[in-house]
Design a protein around this nucleic acid. Structure first.
Length: 122
DNA sequence: ATGCTGACTATGT
DNA sequence: TACATAGCCAGCA
């Protein structure tokens, strides 16, 4: 079995990359989605989209982090190894927040993508 | 200290 | 649009 990433414990290392990732994910507003690469860049880890996925994989169940708002660059929900239910739950939560999926199960990043600055409204 | 794995992305065919 | 390949980093055995 693959070495399942263990959660960063209750006291995440503030210097650790994972903590920075979590901090960014937490800022994603409801009804919007961000790509792994985008989160990585905002976390100061340009190009390390993978780390974002792995960091989220180590999240404990029931944690307050809106991990479901993070999807891949293709606008699709990544399938996790944790269980197929995870991706389903993710899509469900997003739809609940108003994010629309097309017939192919993809999200239009141009519409629901998280824009950090100035965004469309305000 | 070394090697393997993994919620990814960009590029080429 | 879909599949294959290479590059990236942190954590665990």
């Amino acid at each position: 079995m693959p070495a399942r990433v263990r959660r960063p414990a209750a006291a995440p290392d503030p210097s650790g990359s994972w903590s920075r990732i979590y901090a960014v994910v937490r800022r994603i507003p409801a009804g919007r989605v961000a790509t792994y690469g985008q989160v990585a860049a905002l976390a100061g880890l340009p190009g390390q989209a993978r780390l974002v996925g792995y960091a989220l994989a180590g999240l404990p169940d029931g944690n307050p982090l809106p991990w479901h708002r993070v999807i891949n660059a293709a606008g699709r929900v990544s399938t996790r190894h944790d269980g197929p239910g995870g991706s389903v739950l993710q899509r469900l939560r997003l739809e609940q927040e108003g994010v629309r999926f097309d017939a192919r199960g993809r999200v239009d990043l141009a519409t629901f993508g998280w824009k950090r600055k100035a965004e469309v409204r305000r």
